[in-house]
Computed example of a mutant assay.
Amino acid sequence: MNNKEFRFQGLDAKTELKLALMLIFPSLMIMFGILYGSHILFPKISFLMPLLFGATTTVGISIIILKQLTNLVREKEWIINIDDKFLNLKFRGINHHIQLSDIKIIKNLGNIGLRYLTIKTKNNVIKIRVGNTGLAPFSKQKDIDELDAFVQYLKPYIDKHFNEKVLKNIVQPNIIPNFGVYVVKEEKIKYSIINRMKPWQVVVFILGILVLIMILFVNIMEYIFFK
């Protein structure tokens, strides 16, 4: 591979997590405020109505807050240089100089408007987040295209030195270019219980957990505000 540079706007997983944690308190305050206000103003109203209204309002306001918080992040540019032996990734003044032969796993996951790229070596894990959706307002479409171009440029090397992990739980594996988890040929591919599930089994599993959480949440809120 010839020496080539890629630049795009995005975040790393650590910064993304910090933004998510910063949203927890205001989101809870909005939700509890709506539930408490509905209890004071409309004491005879069904609990389900303020719950649905509160959830919708909380999500909408959280998206606006997240957009503003993202705008406060000054350095969001990833700079990637690659040649036939080395990969150098720079983000917020930190350089990751990686020999291509040291890469163990490459995960290129995501959805429309969202990319999660993870590069794992024996001693380091680099997690790149690029997105232009409401819940991931880090980038623009041109940044997503640039990240896709980087993975495409790396694909011949991946095809030669990596095996692709079979993901049975993915409904649309071709939803983004070069979607997949790639494990270096010297390593054994390991599958978790979730990896072995079919898409409908994953959906049932997640829905079951969400239903249990919702039942618990409704019972607690109903006890606090409508007892």
Rank of each mutant, 00 (worst) to 15 (best):
F6A: 07
F6H: 03
F8A: 04
L11H: 10
D12G: 01
K14R: 14
E16G: 11
E16Q: 14
K18W: 11
L19E: 00
L19Q: 13
L23T: 05
F25A: 12
I30P: 08
M31P: 06
F32W: 06
I34G: 01
S38C: 12
F42Q: 12
K44Y: 11
K44T: 09
K44V: 06
S46T: 06
L48Y: 15
P50S: 01
F53I: 14
F53D: 09
G54E: 07
T56L: 15
T56F: 15
T57L: 13
G60I: 14
I61Y: 07
T70I: 09
L72Y: 06
L72G: 02
E75F: 11
E75Y: 09
E75I: 11
E77G: 05
I79G: 03
I80G: 01
I82S: 02
K85T: 04
N88G: 06
N88L: 01
K90Y: 09
F91E: 07
F91K: 07
R92P: 00
G93Y: 04
Q99F: 11
L100F: 03
D102R: 00
I103M: 01
K104N: 05
K107Y: 06
L109E: 07
L109C: 03
G110H: 07
L114Y: 14
R115T: 00
Y116K: 12
L117F: 09
L117S: 03
L117K: 08
L117E: 00
I119H: 04
T121C: 11
K122P: 02
K122Y: 10
N124R: 07
I128S: 04
I128K: 05
G134E: 08
A136F: 14
P137I: 03
F138C: 13
F138D: 10
K142D: 11
I144F: 11
D145G: 05
A149H: 05
A149Y: 06
F150Y: 08
Y153T: 12
L154A: 01
K160L: 12
H161R: 07
E164N: 14
K165L: 08
K168Y: 05
N169C: 11
I170G: 03
I170M: 03
I170H: 08
I170L: 13
V171C: 00
V171T: 13
N174M: 12
V181L: 05
Y182W: 06
V183L: 10
K185G: 09
E186V: 09
K190R: 12
S192C: 08
S192M: 01
S192E: 02
I193Q: 11
I193C: 00
I194Y: 13
I194D: 10
N195H: 10
N195Q: 13
N195Y: 12
R196Y: 00
M197W: 04
K198H: 15
K198S: 15
P199K: 12
V202K: 15
V202Y: 11
V203N: 10
L207N: 15
L210F: 15
V211C: 11
L212Y: 08
I213M: 11
I213G: 00
M214A: 09
L216E: 02
F217C: 10
I220P: 06
Y223R: 07
Y223T: 04
F225H: 07
F225T: 00
F225R: 02
F225Q: 04
K227R: 15
